[in-house]
Each structure stands twice: as structure tokens, then as C-alpha cells.
Amino acid sequence: MIPVAHAAEVSPASQVETSPGLSPEAVKRVFDQQRQALASCMRLLTEESPKENTPWNPPPDVDDRVLLSFEVGRDGKVREDARGGNGPRVEGLYLDRPCARMLVRSWSFPAFPARQGEWVRVELQARFSTTAAERKAGLARIREDFDALCRALSALGGDKPPTEQDVTRTLQRFLTERRSRLHPSMRYGLEGLSGVNVRDMVTLYESSAIELLGTPAACPTVHGWTTR
């Protein structure tokens, strides 16, 4: 049974600074629409070597500030290119940073007049509250999703590896049924598996489990596809 817990919460922005072209008020409005989605990126594991990760429990009085820094183009889209430090920067001990960066890249702001190649710099501060019970529940939900995906893939049979097309259809059906509740990092990872050859799919599937849970995915049928 998945434990019930108080919902994690990201506060409204306490401070927003922007360069000319996009007002702080416009950024605040978008952030207020997205901040609870950002709460789904709560940090669940320690940040040691993935194979040694354990459930994360912050020490008392740890700073729960969230700092976001990113650039917005004239079309209102967030700059994705992280080279040179231009991609979204996420700071906050309670946030899973790769997950948060993926979400920030998906945000859309009002378009504004500017020359090609001009970007508005945005810096934003908020706070993030969560509980040990909620983090435990988050891990349990991800584990249950991996177990369900294992069952769905294993139903394709284990005598020999299934076809790439059959695996892709199974992944797409799984995403359709569970998309709204999946952890963002798991959702993005599964979306990237469609159309991948079966052997590489298994490797990525198992790597994703280690990254999100700190342990390998226990799915003997799927693992066995790489040995046949």
C-alpha cells in the first residue's frame, strides 16, 4: 500500500528579478501556475554515487529556499542550451535538480518585442516545504510504477525478445494510462524509449530505476531480453 502523506508545496515567488523586456509580474503569474508541478520534483535520494543512494532526510533547519535562474526568448520560450551557463539553473536542497530543469524548460511566458538572439534574464526565489512521509510516499509511487511497467513489458513474453514495435506500443499505452501521475523524470525517460531497439531500451530502463530509486529494477523477464 502506498503511504498517505501531506502534499509537498512550493510557495509563491518571494522575489523576481528580470532584465528589460519581460516584467517580474508576468513571470510571477506563470510561476504561480506552475509551482505545484515543480513540487513533483521533490528530492527523494541522497546525491552520492547512484548505486549507493539512500532515501534523503534533511538535517534540522536546512535552508529550504529555491533559486531559479534562466533566460526567456522573445517567443516566450525558456532557453534550453546549457552551454555557457545559459540553460536553466536550479538551486535548492529539496529539489531534484535535473527534474526541475526539465520542467522549467517547458514553461511558456508572454512573447515580447526584441531583436533576434536577445534574451530576458530571470532570477526567482521561493520556498519548498515537504515532509519525510511525503518523500517516502513519492519513492513508493515510483517503485509501484516500475513494478507496473515490469508487468506490462513481461506480458510480451520471455522466450525471446519482443519486437521494437511491440515494446513501443506497450510503453505508449503505459504512458497514456499513467502520464498524469508519473514522476516527471520517469515520464520523460519513458517517452525517450519509444522507437529504441530492445537491448538499448532495457539498459535505459534499468539505468532509470537506479537513478530514481537508488536500486536496480527487479524485472527478470525484461533483463533476460539482453541475454537472448
Results as ranks from 00 to 15, higher is better:
86 N>L: 15
39 A>P: 04
12 P>L: 05
84 G>I: 01
121 R>S: 10
101 R>F: 00
38 L>V: 10
82 A>M: 13
46 T>Y: 07
134 E>D: 10
82 A>F: 15
57 N>M: 08
91 E>W: 09
28 K>N: 14
34 Q>D: 01
101 R>Y: 02
33 Q>W: 08
25 E>K: 04
65 R>Q: 14
70 F>N: 08
51 K>E: 12
23 S>E: 14
90 V>G: 04
15 Q>Y: 14
130 T>L: 10
63 D>N: 15
16 V>I: 13
40 S>G: 00
100 A>P: 02
12 P>A: 13
34 Q>N: 09
77 K>A: 08
97 R>H: 12
99 C>L: 15
149 L>S: 02
45 L>D: 06
112 F>C: 01
51 K>M: 09
24 P>I: 13
10 V>E: 07
78 V>H: 06
42 M>E: 15
59 P>T: 03
81 D>F: 04
83 R>D: 08
112 F>L: 00
99 C>Y: 08
77 K>T: 10
95 L>I: 13
27 V>A: 13
21 G>M: 03
38 L>P: 02
19 S>T: 11
81 D>I: 09
26 A>K: 07
98 P>V: 13
146 F>I: 03
17 E>T: 04
53 N>E: 13
50 P>S: 07
142 I>N: 04
112 F>Y: 15
15 Q>N: 13
118 E>L: 11
56 W>L: 11
22 L>E: 03
18 T>I: 00
21 G>D: 04
88 P>T: 08
147 D>Q: 15
139 L>M: 13
22 L>K: 07
87 G>Y: 10
36 Q>C: 00
13 A>T: 01
128 F>G: 11
59 P>R: 11
22 L>M: 13
39 A>M: 04
90 V>L: 03
14 S>Y: 07
98 P>R: 13
60 P>H: 06
54 T>P: 01
133 A>F: 10
16 V>G: 03
109 F>K: 00
76 G>N: 03
66 V>F: 05
58 P>Q: 12
130 T>K: 08
109 F>M: 02
25 E>G: 05
138 G>W: 05
95 L>W: 11
